[in-house]
Amino acid sequence: MDTTNGSAGPLAPALAPAQDGQRENESGGFRLKLCTVCASNQNRSMEGHLRLAQANYPVISFGTGSLVRLPGPTVTQPNVYKFNETSYDSIYRELEAKDPRLYQANGLLNMLGRNRVIKWGPERWQDWQVGMPRVKHEKDQGSVGMEAGVPDVVITCEERCWDAVVDDLLSRGSPLNRPVHVINIDIKDNHRDALIAGGAMVDLADSLNKAALEERSKVGAVTFDAGGAASRASFDERVPEVLGEWQERWPDLPATWTLSWF
């Protein structure tokens, strides 16, 4: 990486583990592992990545598009980059060299500047090997707790991405036998909406994590014939309920959910 990232990099991750340690102690140590997904792994998923990481959730993020596409000088001339091979920083520097005024004005440089301190570069969902240990990502924000590389909840930012993710999981054939909740939140692809939705994602993560914690705090024998009372219900069962309640709080962000498998 380069100087810009190098200088900003250590700051944020250094902050996160300290907080994480504190929060972990308060909350009994369990944090849901999350994953945010949008089309280009730039705006919406990265806003979510940042906000969830700041809230001390282990988090990774991906894009489902075939290429990273950023607006260019005209609608027909977008800036196109490859996933997994281009760093946020190199994109930043390229656009800055091209037309600093334009890309400052449309917020791209601002966004890329934020992204390059979160992680190295945009990653593509379809190329991601689920369960590959992510031990080389210590510098990424939200990397703590994500070492095993398997999230509990995937949050997509657009119906199209949700479809792509669920469909991709079907193609993979669920070799890991591990359930995953895939939740879509429809977010319009602009900075303002992404910002609002970032808060909504944290709210959702907190609600879900609370349910998961309650499940974990129930110590003792399983009564097989129980299952009735909501307080006894497991995390998995409570996800749709929690999402429904969340939806009431965030009516402008229509949500979809399914339980799939890695």
């Binding site: 949700w162 669920v166 469909d167 749709p240 309920e241 429904g244 309640e245 939806q247 979809t256 399914t258």
Partner: peptide, 16 residues
């Protein structure tokens, strides 16, 4: 709210 999530989920999962 919960049934709404259920219906949407069942429909979309079946469709996908």
């Amino acid at each position: 709210p919960k049934t709404r999530v259920f219906v949407k989920s069942l429909e979309k999962t079946t469709r996908v």
